[in-house]
């Protein structure tokens, strides 16, 4: 670094290589995966629609107000997805339903990730008795099928959005705890963790700085796929009347009320069903793509 020229060269080199963080690596690989990009595009579209819902349809005017005159109209130019038994625009309810399903899905997964992730990380990192106690409690939760557990909790707490989120989070916590624990276990004994110990780093620091960032890959994949499962469970719970209560638009609840008219107005159930299917498909495509992109063996 004696002359100006070499400094500039080094700076240019740095700029060129700086961007090659692991994140950009993964993004580069993910971009090559067409299915995953399709999934991502659909998810962006859905999230965009959900966010823009108030701009497209008025909640009070189009989504929940009844208009019996127009009940059960088949799809047409005036009613793209048709109308339901109250004369409400199905397209409006599907779009507003995305808002409900996606927000509850992501919030529930976020809670499950924080709680399950913390438990799993502690369990995997400290091992021994701590590990045993935490994981046996998780096993108890895992012994009950997820949907059944959610139904039980939702039924016990009563139907409300918050309760639904709690029910869904609790049933997802053990899965996250397992995934994070397994991932932490593989990272815990790697040499750079030993190297971090050798420079005197404390346990907390090692866990936060070295272990968790390196065990994120499978967790990201599980999160994506879990959002799909949870959206499906919300629909299932609403279908059973334990989820979102009327008149709030929700895909599962729409399926539930539409099934009475299945014979004459199949479009009523078809569109919310399609919405659910598309969302789950998109999330699964994205999750699978992420799994491949994050797999270090494919590097």
């Amino acid at each position: 670094m004696t002359t100006q020229a070499t400094t500039v060269d080094a700076a240019a080199l740095t700029k060129k290589y700086k961007k090659q963080s692991q994140f950009s690596e993964v993004w580069r690989r993910l971009r090559k995966n067409k299915a995953a990009m399709l999934g991502l595009a659909i998810m962006i579209l859905l999230v965009g629609l959900a966010l823009a819902a108030p701009l497209i349809y008025d909640y009070d005017g189009d989504v929940i107000s009844q208009n019996i005159k127009n009940r059960l109209q088949p799809p047409s130019a005036a009613h793209p997805f048709g109308t339901d038994e109250m004369g409400r625009e199905i397209l409006a309810r599907v779009i507003w339903g995305a808002r409900t399903s996606l927000s509850i899905g992501f919030t529930a997964v976020l809670f499950a990730l924080i709680v399950g992730g913390t438990l799993g990380a502690i369990s995997g990192f400290y091992g021994g008795i701590v590990d045993n106690v935490i994981m046996r409690i998780m096993d108890i939760f895992l012994a009950v099928p997820g949907t059944l557990l959610a139904i039980t909790i939702a039924a016990a707490l009563g139907p409300s959005t918050i309760n639904l989120i709690i029910a869904l989070s609790i049933s997802s916590v053990p899965g996250f705890a397992r995934i994070v624990r397994g991932s932490v276990l593989t990272v815990r004994d790697v040499e750079y963790i030993e190297a971090a110990k050798a420079i005197g780093a404390s346990n907390g620091r090692i866990l936060l700085q070295h272990v968790i960032p390196n065990s994120l890959a499978p967790v990201i994949v599980h999160t994506t796929l879990n959002v799909a499962t949870i959206i499906l469970t919300i629909a299932g719970l609403s279908f059973l009347g334990l989820g979102i209560s009327a008149p709030t638009p929700e895909w599962g609840a729409m399926l539930s009320s539409g099934r009475t008219y299945l014979r004459n107005a199949s479009y009523y159930t078809m569109f919310p069903g399609l919405a659910i299917m598309t969302t789950i498909l998109a999330l699964n495509l994205l999750g699978d793509g992420l799994r491949d992109a994050l797999d270090p063996r494919l590097k």
Partner: peptide
């Protein structure tokens, strides 16, 4: 082994 004694994500 310097390949494994550095944290790959830092």
């Amino acid at each position: 082994d310097p390949m494994t004694s550095l944290n790959p994500v830092m």
